[in-house]
């Protein structure tokens, strides 16, 4: 790992105001990504993976609010930057690929124009030159016949093609951090692999650090150097992919791995995780939000969550790790 990480998130807390009360969606989330590193953020639905990404990008819904924390990126705190300066960075230095590429693109604008918009905004391209550069980008994400496709609307392209366009938009200005939020959701399995390979390859080529959000541990292990496990708005474990698979220390990570289909083992051997995510609106949330589902629970678990280094680059937030 190089000295200064590409992104260092500390103590990130996010709340959502809803009709039925305040939801503490993220609680003291902390992690870092080294320059050029590929890190996965995994967890079940509702664990706060996407919210973490949105908070870092500064594109939370109006109902969401960052209550504390820092996100150091290239010497500035993304969470404290005024919107104007943050908008300068977004799309240029840090960019994002979303799930459901079909809805993530403007339905009534030609895809070439959508890429050109970003290039004009950040890349210093002129309106006259941008279309040619957009076609270059389409070529880069290996869209066949890019000259013709640049004039297509998203509804005229397949889901995989739309995701390639999305990738082209994201990497158009060679960002130093790329966040991919479940980029293969809604694509068929063969397309998934192609899209993942493309993201990995392009990220390597331009030296971009990648934060890959997924609920698919196998996919995470295959493409990422390190895996961060989230549960109910907490980071519970962070470890190099191989280490996590061979020696997960947090009970939740272990359960998650047991619930992942592997190459060996019948489907019948898959275990489900007992219980469900706690209601984050509760006032009496335990300090460890997994404790109510946990079979290794101790009385000490009621005390504030620890963050213990248990190995090289291996951190676990548990009082009674495996």
């Amino acid at each position: 790992m190089s000295a200064a990480p590409a992104l260092a998130v500390e103590d990130l807390c996010v709340e959502f105001r809803t009709r039925s009360g305040v939801v503490k969606v993220l609680d003291q989330v902390g992690f870092s990504i080294a320059k050029g590193e590929t890190v996965a953020l995994v967890g079940e639905s509702g664990s706060g993976k996407s919210v973490t990404a949105f908070a870092v990008m500064g594109i939370l819904d109006a109902a969401g609010r960052v209550t504390s924390g820092t996100a150091m990126f290239g010497g500035s705190d993304l969470l404290a930057l005024p919107e104007r300066e943050l908008a300068e960075l977004r799309g240029r230095e840090l960019s994002m690929i979303f799930q459901n590429p079909r809805t993530a693109l403007n339905p009534i604008r030609r895809v070439g124009e959508q890429i050109a918009d970003v290039l004009v905004r950040h890349g210093g391209a002129t309106r006259a030159k941008a279309p040619a550069l957009a076609i270059e980008m389409l070529k880069k994400v290996r869209i066949p016949d890019p000259e013709r496709r640049a004039k297509a609307y998203p509804f005229e392209l397949s889901g995989g093609m739309c995701q390639r366009v999305m990738i082209a938009i994201a990497i158009a200005c060679r960002p130093s951090l790329l966040i991919a939020d479940e980029p293969t959701t809604g694509l068929d399995v063969t397309t998934q692999a192609v899209i993942m390979d493309l993201i990995a390859e392009l990220a390597r080529e331009i030296g971009t650090a990648t934060l890959f959000i997924t609920h698919d541990l196998t996919l995470a292990a295959e493409y990422c150097d390190r895996i961060i496990v989230m549960h109910a708005g907490h980071v519970v474990e962070s470890a190099p992919s191989a280490t996590l698979f061979s020696a997960a220390r947090h009970p939740y990570s272990a359960r998650l791995l047991a619930a992942t289909p592997g190459e060996s083992g019948a489907l019948a051997s898959l275990a489900s995780i007992p219980g469900s995510l706690p209601d984050l609106r509760r006032a009496d949330l335990p300090s460890c939000r997994y404790s109510e589902r946990c079979e290794r629970r101790l009385d000490a678990c009621a005390e504030p969550l620890p963050r213990t280094a248990v190995g090289e680059a291996h951190i676990v937030a548990c009082r009674n790790p495996l």
Partner: peptide, 8 residues
């Protein structure tokens, strides 16, 4: 959201 994430 994409447009905002692109810093437009």
């Amino acid at each position: 959201r994409t447009a905002r994430a692109s810093g437009l």
